[in-house]
């Protein structure tokens, strides 16, 4: 079993003036090196969880342990150096006039000495394949490029955990793939742990583990294969199932003799081919 990186214990959070708890008695663990997809309808509490994890908000009940240390107003800076966040809107997270200034911003705040800073900025930008854009102005970049620079800003700080809060939802399909590919590579390389808050069920299907939120509560957690077994139940929660799962179900209902369940299109194509060759 991998090491627990973060533990949430019975978290309750309510926004001022609201009657319902935005996060309602939620407990779960995040393990080192995993890709955890957090899904749920709009308003199910996903983004609130992200804010709690990063100490932008504090729970009214329960506790969050980061590497065994409780996250409080006193320990928040320590925790933030371990947890980086990338937000939805690429245009809302730029502070620097150039790409390299922007990536350096966090390092300057953290008091990293200049020679080390220069090295880290270049490294981080190389890793997200933006190494040749050092002096470009951020607003001239495409959405996917901007998000990759934002990711560089996060990884330059060498966090243990990166939270993507719908970081690809404003991008076009190509930009989305660029960003996800980048994060996947980073995760493979240096054991970065990833929490991805997303409505993209195809992306969630590729995660190691999924958590389904519903009306502030943790509804279910498990590996994608198990989660997507819920099919109709997920749709009732306002979610969807990946195309291959939907299609595989339709084929079976129409008498095509498939036996497995299929989380990816490749798996489905493979079984159809096997079936075809036996005929």
């Amino acid at each position: 079993m991998a090491k627990k990186l973060v533990s949430l214990e019975n978290i309750v959070f309510k926004y001022e003036g609201q009657t319902r708890n935005a996060v309602d008695h939620v407990s779960f663990d995040i393990y080192e090196g995993e890709w955890l997809a957090l899904v749920g309808h709009n308003g199910s509490g996903k983004s609130t969880l992200a804010k709690l994890l990063n100490g932008l908000q504090f729970p009214q009940e329960g506790s969050i342990l980061v590497n065994g240390t409780e996250l409080t107003e006193e320990t928040v800076w320590e925790a933030r150096s371990k947890i980086g966040m990338v937000f939805q809107n690429p245009d809302n997270q730029f502070v620097g006039a150039t790409v390299q200034d922007d990536v350096a911003f966090g390092l300057e705040n953290a008091g990293i000495p200049l020679p080390e800073m220069v090295k880290r900025v270049q490294n981080a930008l190389n890793k997200v394949k933006m190494g040749s854009f050092l002096n470009q102005e951020p607003h001239h970049l495409s959405g996917g490029q901007k998000q990759r620079v934002a990711i560089a800003g996060v990884i330059a700080l060498q966090p243990d955990l990166i939270i993507l809060d719908e970081a690809t939802s404003m991008l076009d399909p190509r930009g989305r793939e660029e960003v996800l590919e980048t994060v996947r590579e980073l995760k493979e390389e240096n054991l970065l742990t990833v929490i991805s808050i997303t409505h993209d069920l195809e992306e969630a299907a590729k995660a190691d583990r999924m958590i389904v939120m519903n009306e502030g509560k943790l509804y279910r957690q498990g590996i994608p294969t198990d989660i997507f077994q819920m099919e109709g139940e997920l749709i009732e929660l306002g979610l969807d199932i990946p195309f291959s799962v939907k299609l595989s179900k339709e084929f079976k209902e129409h008498g095509i003799g498939l036996v497995k369940s299929h989380l990816t299109e490749e798996e489905l194509v493979r079984e159809l081919c096997e079936l075809h060759s036996k005929m």
Partner: peptide, 8 residues
């Protein structure tokens, strides 16, 4: 519909 959940 960018950013909305699948049902929305």
């Amino acid at each position: 519909t960018a950013g909305l959940d699948p049902r929305g």
